[in-house]
């Protein structure tokens, strides 16, 4: 069929109704969001609220030993107690704070590193691009979890190390995405026009290119957040992630794992919390991608 002269399909068109301001536009979009997206948004909001208000909601302290080990559900301890006699509900609530907080920080850091380098590689090209891309290839060639385990055992597993190591390992994927989408924008005339008007690299990166590649990056942020979250949980389960007595869903599964043998579902609760958040984030990301990529339902 007839084809537009320039292929602009990679650039989402700017918001058409910009006069109404950002908030009404966002509300307008929300109103027509599918139920899955609504479900995701509500679940995420609840998680965030719980994480922020943990000390107010939790009936006991995070590491407070309140009773004997493995108390059953009900009574004073709604979800029973763990192997040291700490209230499980309280730990679940504090766990939201630790796990989500660390995951958000890690994802943000990995996007800063990967996004910045990806943009640089796309704009500068040449040997900068080659060098960065090959370095990323090398990092990606090593299985992530094993690499992280190795680094954590070398540097010791503190929260800072955890965040740094996972962020660096994860930034490789962000780098690849940023570079790929930025490549499509770099070649457009408005970037050249900016160069001809003497704009510096910083301006071109942040004002000319970044706004045009933001939608895929935001979507990727959601997905990467899930992966980071799962990696941390996995590392904690293996004992190298968040260290006791800090409450964290991954290690909570491990600590109470034996209960499964007695037909008690308690260890599944933190696992379920992880699963639910992952599903919720994915629902929201799906909807966002759908909105911004211009995909339409086939009828």
């Amino acid at each position: 069929m007839s084809v537009e002269p320039a292929d602009l399909s990679t650039i989402p068109s700017a918001p058409a109704r910009a006069h109404g301001g950002l908030l009404p536009a966002a509300w307008h979009a929300l109103k027509r969001a599918p139920p899955t997206a609504w479900f995701g948004i509500i679940v995420i909001s609840i998680y965030i609220l719980v994480a922020l208000l943990a000390p107010l909601i939790a009936p006991y302290g995070e590491a407070e030993i309140v009773s004997g080990a493995y108390e059953p559900w009900g009574g004073d301890y709604l979800l029973g107690t763990d192997q040291l006699g700490r209230d499980l509900l309280s730990r679940l609530i504090y766990g939201a704070r630790n796990t989500i907080g660390i995951a958000v920080m890690t994802t943000a850091l990995s996007f800063t590193i990967g996004g910045l380098l990806g943009l640089l590689a796309a704009i500068l090209g040449g040997w900068t691009d080659q060098l960065l891309a090959r370095a990323v290839d090398i990092l990606m060639a090593i299985p992530q979890l094993i690499f992280a385990l190795m680094l954590l055992s070398i540097f010791g597993s503190s929260v800072t190390n955890l965040i740094l190591i996972i962020a660096v390992l994860d930034s490789t994927r962000v780098f690849r995405l940023t570079r790929a989408v930025a490549m499509n924008v770099v070649v457009l005339d408005f970037v050249e026009a900016a160069r001809l008007q003497g704009e510096k690299l910083g301006w071109i990166m942040t004002r000319e290119i970044l706004p045009n590649i933001l939608p895929p990056l935001v979507a990727e942020f959601g997905l990467r957040f899930c992966f980071v979250f799962l990696t941390i949980a996995a590392l904690s389960f293996l004992g190298l992630g968040i260290q006791p007595p800090t409450a964290d869903w991954g290690s909570m599964v491990r600590e109470n794992a034996t209960l499964i043998n007695y037909g008690d579902v308690t260890p599944l609760l933190p696992a379920g919390a992880i699963a639910l958040l992952t599903v919720a984030v994915n629902f929201v990301v799906d909807w966002f991608l759908h909105k911004t990529s211009g995909l339409r339902d086939e009828r």
Partner: peptide, 24 residues
């Protein structure tokens, strides 16, 4: 230099790609 860049300007074939879609 900046002064020189100012003196030579360019207008493009495709106005669609010559303007940043995200800027007013």
């Amino acid at each position: 230099g900046k002064k020189l860049l100012q003196r030579i300007q360019m207008i493009y074939q495709m106005p669609d790609t010559a303007l940043n879609p995200r800027r007013r």
